[in-house]
Design a protein around this nucleic acid. Structure first.
Length: 434
DNA sequence: TCTGGGGTCCTAGGACCC
DNA sequence: TCTGGGGTCCTAGGACCC
């Protein structure tokens, strides 16, 4: 069966470029004596974040604990993740891509899409050759390898780049689509997770080709908009354009930290929560954002979790303004005697912090003081290391229970007008699905 | 596989309004 | 008190991704 009637006038040439074991490749590029050796990153967490191909060959994979990895491979070189350096390499990688066209999407630190459509004439060569040149440039200039897929849509290009790794190149043209999809199991398709694959398998499908030959209505009805989009992309019909917009802003900022061993100690858990909150606010200010809603959750040992969400009546960048509300949520959540294994904080309803508006009844001096203190702390921590300066509370020193007084500026700033704390905090809304 | 951490997008259904 | 129809906005939660 021929699923597609391509309109070649509109057919695109999309490249997906995927760094091979990016973190460890960068490490091996900087430290050439590590080349050819099994290397992993993730020392700081005790879990493998990235494994070099040499390590993978020995059976050391992402997500394995360090202890297990060292058992499998005693010669393993274990490095802490150095995001600053990886980001620098990433930046240079995207600069190389942009030498060819500005239509580049920074999909993640080590993955990008490039729309080459229309560039054959300019470079007087085929799309394949242009894509391979980019691949060679990166290899030569950065001394890391990338795998490349070239096809008619992002969805197909992404399948291509995964097909041969490392240092692979795979081009899927219109006539080759069916043959390629026939070899592609559903779970490899970008956008199909566990649940979708299970659902499709119940309907008797096994390969991406099985999916693509289904009628459009059938797909739309079963999987909705997202599924319909994937169906189009896999048929070579590009409906998901290469997005050149810089992803500068966030919708949410979250921090989640698992304890090394579960705890039921109220002060300890509170201290951990505050520490997460501090990290989240540091990130918030670094991106020049302010927050309007805060969610807090505690994860139990059985991996269940519950949490509260609070809406602030005024957006803020200062942790001092939200501590009382967070404390209130914590007191409602924490159940003595239960074993907890993680705390989570989500800052939501973020907005740009470029304009500053005060309502006339707000204590302007007070707010500005909070912000000045925050700035000073950011600066100190930037110079001397994260959490050099932090709230006393997070140092496990908070022995006295938080006392509520109606005239505290924090309270005033954090609650909606006419709302009491009890009203706000007793609404047990479960949020966060991690 | 007993589960790390940080994100985005879509959708059904409720609240509220005319 | 029950009854219509239609629109918008918001939210919780599901599903996926790197």
């Amino acid at each position: 069966m021929q699923p597609q009637l391509l309109n070649l006038q509109h057919s695109k040439a999309i490249v997906h470029l995927d760094g091979d074991s990016f973190f460890t490749s960068v490490e091996q590029s900087i430290k050439p004596y590590l080349k050819g050796k099994p290397v992993v990153t993730g020392k700081e967490r005790g879990i493998i974040a990235c494994a070099s191909y040499e390590a993978k060959a020995l059976g050391v994979a992402r997500g394995v604990t360090l202890r297990e990895a060292l058992r499998i491979c005693p010669d393993l070189t274990v490095l802490p993740s150095d995001y600053e350096t990886y980001s620098l390499y990433s930046k240079r990688m995207f600069e190389i891509m942009r030498r060819y066209t500005p239509v580049v999407e920074e999909y993640s630190i080590d993955e990008g899409f490039i729309d080459l459509t229309g560039l054959r004439r300019i470079f007087r060569t085929s799309y394949e050759e242009i894509a391979m040149r980019i691949q060679r440039d990166i290899n030569r200039e950065l001394d890391i390898t990338v795998s490349v897929g070239l096809s008619l849509s992002k969805g197909l290009a992404k399948l291509g780049s995964k097909f041969r790794k490392p240092h692979g190149f795979t081009s899927i043209d219109g006539l080759g689509i069916n043959a390629f999809l026939e070899k592609t199991p559903l779970k490899k398709v970008w956008g199909f997770g566990h649940n979708t694959v299970n659902l499709l398998e119940k309907h008797g499908l096994k390969t991406a080709l099985d999916f693509v030959v289904k009628p459009e209505q059938w797909v739309e009805h079963l999987l909705g908009k997202t599924g319909h989009e994937i169906w189009n992309e896999l048929r070579g019909n590009s409906v998901n354009p290469v997005n050149t917009q810089e992803k500068s802003s966030y919708y949410t900022i979250s921090k989640c930290k698992t304890f090394t061993s579960p705890s039921s100690d109220r002060d300890f858990i509170w201290a951990k929560l505050v520490r997460n909150l501090e990290s989240a606010f540091i990130k918030l200010r670094r991106h020049k954002l302010r927050v309007r809603a805060i969610a807090v959750a505690l994860r139990l040992q059985d991996f269940h979790q519950d949490g509260f969400e609070a809406r602030l009546n005024r957006p803020t960048t200062s942790i001092y303004e939200v501590i009382p509300v967070v404390r209130g949520m914590f007191e409602n959540l924490y159940k003595p005697g239960k074993e907890y294994r993680a705390t989570m904080v989500v800052l939501g309803k973020l907005e740009n912090d470029d304009t500053r508006q005060y309502e006339f009844f707000e204590d302007r001096l007070r707010i500005e003081t909070f912000e000045a203190v925050s700035r000073a702390i950011d600066e100190t921590n930037r110079r001397y290391g994260k959490h050099t300066l932090s709230l006393g509370m997070s140092l496990y020193l908070d022995k006295h229970r938080h006392t509520d007084r109606d005239d505290t500026p924090c309270r005033k700033a954090c609650l909606l007008p006419g709302e009491t704390k009890r009203q706000r905090l007793n609404i047990p809304r479960l949020m966060l699905s991690v």
